[in-house]
Design a protein around this nucleic acid. Structure first.
Length: 498
RNA sequence: GGGCCGUUAACUCAGUCGGUAGAGUAUCUGCCUUUUAAGCAGAGAGUCGCUGGUUCGAGUCCAGCACGGCCCA
């Protein structure tokens, strides 16, 4: 190891000095302390006169965030999970020896303090320390106190420092936890069973995406990290569970962007005897509830744009959206050649003989999606790009499916489920046959899934909700990385596989 | 994958025309018992992302690479 920086050396030396003075740097006999936030809440309205009548002492523990010393006395602020509180310490009160030890404490150390409450000249509620003890010695300095940690790379790599220094980051992740709790509560209280299905699958399915491949040594087979839990959840419908949901990670071996992390959290739920239209109502209801809880209103701003989640939301067919929002003429919609010319005009090179749906959805991605700010259900997706969705009874070239867009992003995807095993088998086989070297299409038909459908799956509808994107929306976060504690980054030092 | 920008002390950032590496915070020493970005006086702290090149001389110019950010695909 190279020469350590001066600042680390000083911390280490100070720690050794404390140990020589008999101070335990990492004790493990600290009784559960009181929370700073709770104390502040209770004594909010007390002035000094009222506080003098409070005879109790309060024992708190937390990280020293700021420290202002004055020779024989000092003020410092400690922060715990509930908030922070100021401490005043005087040599003449804690004793000369204890004060000498306190002088060796640093910003970043975790300390335990006990004492009575008072208010300073500037009216700040403060604990006058009778006792102070080191709880955990910090061997490394915290980032600069005023600017905190700004460098985005460092914030993602060292999320622990980001969480200490940037209050709003902790708030975002508390909101995330709350949203996930609400999702879970909504489904369990509506009779859905929470289930867990394989994340390592021997046949990929349930979506169109490149999977991560791994290898099982004992079985001697390659396995794929799941890109979606869909086919397993529907097997559970066959098995007799009529309402199921799973809230967990999917993995897709694709690019990283403001909206994409290789592992991301998805909620999928399936409901027997429901159709995609029922799911629209559920989605409106669920999102509106979350908005009310987190934002206090179904109207709020995201990145400067007003979003109105008050149900009901706008509904359009894919074709309508291409004409009305995308500015494509009705006559072009069935003309692959014309659509391809459009795409080339937008700088997109696509193959010549793809299915019509591919051209339509690509144009949608470019011309329509970014403009859908308000919650909008887009329906009637072509059957040729919806291999798991039920055909529309009136027009079998489209499916009973919707995708939900908010703020120019896809948030959810839902459809009435295809439960005719004959049609499903045909669509799988066509898909695999047309695969070529497109790694996004599963290379193999999941015949066991067909077998399950042959046993009989009740009519049902299912939906997937991108939880990270939902959290972004409700926490006004511009990047998916702001709502994932440890987003994927290249390893430091540029280590790469050959 | 492409374009643009960034990478300098633990952190936040300056660094002019190529000529001895700077500030604030943090740290250390001294003073200081109501501060809250405390104050005053002093001190220490650098592989200027990495590797080459040009040059008498490179943080600065050039090339390649690494990592990141933003935009586009």
């Amino acid at each position: 190891m190279s020469e350590e920086s001066q600042i680390l050396k000083q911390r280490r030396q100070k720690a050794e000095e404390l140990e020589r003075l008999g101070v335990d740097l990492f004790p493990n006999d600290v009784p559960l302390p009181e929370r700073a936030g709770a104390i502040k809440k209770v004594y909010e309205g007390y002035d000094n006169e009222a506080l003098e009548k409070v005879e109790d002492t309060f024992r708190v523990a937390g990280r020293i965030m700021a420290l202002r010393r004055f020779g024989k006395a000092a003020f410092f602020t400690i922060k715990d999970a509930s908030g922070s509180i100021q401490i005043h310490i005087m040599r003449d009160r804690v004793g000369k020896d204890r004060y000498q030890i306190f002088k060796k404490f640093d910003i970043g150390d975790i300390v335990e303090v006990e004492g009575r409450l008072f208010r300073t000249k500037t009216n700040e509620l403060t604990i006058e320390a009778d006792r102070i003890r080191l709880v955990t010695k910090s061997m490394r300095p915290l980032p600069e106190k005023y600017h905190g940690i700004r460098d985005k790379e460092l914030r993602y790599r060292r999320r622990y420092e980001d969480l200490i220094m940037n209050q709003e980051v902790a708030e975002t992740f508390r909101a995330r936890a709350r949203i996930i709790q609400m999702l879970r509560h909504y489904f369990t209280s509506n009779g859905f069973l929470e289930v867990e299905t394989p994340m390592m699958q021997s046949i990929v399915g349930g979506a169109t995406a490149r999977p991560f491949v791994t290898h099982h040594n004992a079985l001697g087979i390659d396995l794929f990290m799941r890109i979606a839990p869909e086919l397993y959840l529907k097997r559970l419908l066959v098995g007799g569970f009529e309402r199921v949901f799973e809230l967990n990670r999917n993995f897709r071996n694709e690019g990283i962007s403001l909206q994409h992390n290789p592992e991301f959290t998805m909620l999928e739920f399936y409901e027997a005897y429901a159709t995609f239209k029922d799911l629209m109502v559920r989605t409106e209801e669920l999102f509106a509830q979350i908005a009310l809880d987190i934002k206090g209103s179904t109207r709020f701003t995201y990145q400067g744009n007003e979003i109105d989640m008050t149900p009901p939301w706008k509904k359009m067919t894919l074709r309508e959206s291409l004409v009305e929002v995308g500015g494509i003429s009705e006559s072009e919609l069935d003309d692959k050649e014309a659509l391809n010319v459009r795409l080339e005009g937008l700088g997109v090179e696509m193959g010549r003989d793809l299915v019509l749906g591919k051209y339509l959805t690509k144009l949608f991605d470019l011309l329509v999606e970014p403009k859908l700010m308000q919650p909008t259900f887009i329906t009637h997706y072509p059957t040729d790009i919806s291999p798991l969705a039920r055909r529309n009874a009136k027009d079998p070239s489209v499916t009973d499916r919707f995708e939900l867009f908010i703020s120019g992003r896809e948030i959810a995807n839902a459809f009435s489920e295809l439960n005719d095993p004959r049609d499903q088998k045909r669509r799988f086989e066509e898909q695999v046959a047309s695969r070529g070297d497109d790694e996004e299409i599963p290379p193999e038909v999941d015949y066991d899934y067909i077998r399950a459908l042959e046993i009989g799956m009740p009519p049902a509808a299912g939906e997937g909700i991108g939880v990270d994107r939902l959290v972004m929306l409700f926490t006004d976060s511009p990047s998916i990385r702001d709502v994932i504690f440890f987003p994927q980054l290249r390893p430091e030092g540029g280590r790469r596989s050959p």
